[in-house]
Design a protein around this nucleic acid. Structure first.
Lengths: 212, 212
DNA sequence: CTTTTGGATATTGGATCCGATCACGGTTCG
DNA sequence: CGAACCGTGATCGGATCCAATATCCAAAAG
């Protein structure tokens, strides 16, 4: 496995909370798990440092970035600034193939049972990534992806514990329809509303947890 | 030198065009220059990959990220989305010490001769960094810094060849005054205007060059 | 009983070495 | 004459080895 692939695998593990925020990363253990020496592993870790997903303190090793309520709110603020403006580019450069891919993802999400929360979140993440990449705005997508990767472990518990999945599912259906109709304004509006809803719910949930 | 320090030095070299966009990076040469082996150097490079400053193609080594006109415009669009909203946080958390630091930077810029274009750009960059860090929004600042580092080599030639330095200098003076007065709205407006002005000038300059 | 100090162990960071791959140049064949 | 084909050097990627440092536990001092 090459450093890029290792970084990809680690990003996924972080998003899925298989390696939760705050977790210290043992280089030997991870290297063994990926079947490589520590050199390519450390290079992968350095990439994740650049993306803000972990912090490495000299001599102390790496720790998965932990977020408090304020930081999650900050990141959702960034999502609000970055994601809605992608809408025009998306509907402009859209092809039938792309619509089909997105439709497949939404259908896959709909078909899942209530218990399959993790799978739903994974598809939901991929839906966003796929959608935004259609905008053709490399750098914006890079930044958005960094933000999404950072908040995903927290958004997951949100989608899991709270009963907000039906609403989010409906949001995705509506987004898909608006994209299909090339209605940029509406897509922009739906993305904005979706982020706002998630932000307030997640902030409330985190505040309640920190009280307990 | 540790990987973080090497990455810092390389970022600076990229910004100052000492290592220009498109330049291929020889690991042996750079490792020698920093007085280390290739291991910590490669880790530094991987961090820069995470920040989008270089791209590494397997077996082919690293190349400093090159931008075309569209990408520069995209990045200035991101600046417009990310930087003005930092204003409220800045004026809110501002201390006298911070105002003094910023004032020193602006004064240092004013005192430079017309020929000292590189020095002016360096101070201008540090002014922005310092200003934005006052906002206390870690993640927003991280993203903004990534964008600033990417466009800086292009913004430099812009500030150098075009006669826009007097206007930019005045913009910094005005910003400083607005910050001193804790006028968040005005700071936001000034940041926005400054970015817009730079964007149009730079886009024009790049378009003309590509014609020739 | 708490705190501190010493040492054993685990873990990180870096240098050297080796294999693999790519670029380049000369040669040969169609 | 041009194009494809090797061979050689340069460069990258990774594994192993070694030094430095942090962590943890036990023992001793207050």
């Amino acid at each position: 496995m090459r450093p890029d692939e290792i970084a990809t695998a680690l990003r996924q593990a972080f998003r899925e909370r298989l390696i939760p925020p705050g977790q210290a990363l043992n280089q030997d253990e991870l290297a063994r798990r990926f079947g490589v020496s520590r050199i390519p592993l450390r290079e992968a870790l350095r990439t994740l440092v650049g993306e803000g997903l972990i912090i490495m303190r000299p001599g102390l090793g790496a720790v998965v970035t932990e977020l408090n309520v304020d930081e999650v709110e900050e990141l959702y603020g960034l999502r609000l600034q970055l994601e809605p403006p992608l809408a025009p580019g998306i509907v402009e450069r859209l092809g039938q193939r792309d619509v089909d891919d997105l439709a497949r993802l939404v259908e896959g999400m709909r078909a899942l049972t209530a218990a399959q929360s993790e799978e739903w979140s994974t598809l939901n993440y991929r839906f966003h990534r796929r959608l935004y990449e259609l905008s053709g705005q490399r750098h914006a997508v890079r930044l958005v992806t960094q933000v999404l990767n950072l908040v995903e472990p927290y958004a997951r518990v949100h989608a899991h514990v709270l009963g907000s999945r039906p609403r989010m599912q409906q949001e995705r259906v509506d987004m898909l329809q608006a994209v299909r109709d090339h209605e940029a304004e509406r897509v922009e509006e739906l993305i904005d509303r979706s982020i706002r809803a998630a932000r307030t719910e997640l902030a409330q949930a985190m505040a309640e947890i920190s009280i307990n």
